[in-house]
Simulated assay, not measured.
Amino acid sequence: MSGPDAGATGPSHDVRRLERPEGAPRCPVPGDEQDAADLVRRKLRGMPTDLDRAKATRRLVDMLARRGYSASIAYAVVKAELAEADR
């Protein structure tokens, strides 16, 4: 085999495709608490109603963290949405 990718054995040769275009935000912009709350509400609708609150909190905070939200914003949004859902 010959060419620029002849010895590539892992995903490192595909990194070029994963790069973001110039000017694209790397994480949610400050003030996106409303977007985070919408995500949490949508995810809450699909969760079992008898799910332990601590487990639900962990899952929701982890979901927001994977999407780039800081831990403090994620926890605050999840706490508020769970309180709203309990009413």
Rank of each mutant, 00 (worst) to 15 (best):
2 S>C: 10
3 G>V: 11
4 P>W: 13
5 D>N: 15
5 D>I: 07
5 D>L: 08
6 A>D: 14
9 T>E: 09
10 G>M: 04
12 S>Y: 13
13 H>E: 13
14 D>Q: 05
16 R>H: 15
17 R>Y: 13
18 L>D: 09
18 L>E: 10
18 L>G: 03
19 E>V: 15
19 E>D: 11
20 R>Q: 12
20 R>V: 06
21 P>M: 08
21 P>S: 09
22 E>G: 03
22 E>S: 06
22 E>I: 06
22 E>Y: 03
23 G>R: 05
24 A>E: 14
25 P>T: 00
26 R>L: 07
27 C>Q: 12
27 C>H: 04
28 P>R: 05
29 V>K: 14
29 V>N: 07
29 V>T: 13
29 V>C: 03
29 V>I: 13
30 P>M: 12
30 P>C: 10
31 G>W: 04
31 G>C: 10
32 D>C: 14
33 E>D: 08
34 Q>R: 06
35 D>H: 10
35 D>G: 05
36 A>D: 00
36 A>L: 01
36 A>F: 01
36 A>E: 01
38 D>H: 01
39 L>K: 01
39 L>Y: 02
40 V>F: 03
41 R>G: 06
41 R>M: 03
42 R>P: 03
42 R>K: 14
43 K>A: 02
43 K>Q: 08
47 M>D: 02
47 M>L: 14
48 P>I: 05
50 D>Q: 15
51 L>T: 15
51 L>A: 09
53 R>F: 04
53 R>S: 11
55 K>D: 08
55 K>Q: 13
57 T>S: 06
57 T>A: 14
58 R>T: 06
58 R>D: 09
58 R>G: 05
59 R>H: 08
59 R>G: 02
59 R>S: 08
60 L>C: 03
61 V>E: 11
62 D>S: 14
62 D>T: 12
62 D>R: 12
63 M>G: 02
63 M>C: 11
64 L>N: 09
64 L>W: 13
66 R>Y: 12
67 R>F: 12
67 R>G: 13
67 R>M: 12
68 G>P: 10
68 G>Y: 09
68 G>H: 08
68 G>E: 07
69 Y>C: 06
69 Y>P: 01
69 Y>K: 05
70 S>Y: 03
70 S>M: 02
72 S>P: 00
73 I>D: 05
73 I>H: 01
73 I>M: 10
73 I>A: 02
75 Y>A: 09
75 Y>D: 08
75 Y>S: 09
76 A>Y: 03
77 V>P: 02
77 V>H: 00
78 V>T: 04
78 V>L: 02
80 A>M: 06
80 A>P: 05
82 L>Y: 10
82 L>F: 03
82 L>H: 03
83 A>V: 14
84 E>F: 11
85 A>N: 05
87 R>F: 07
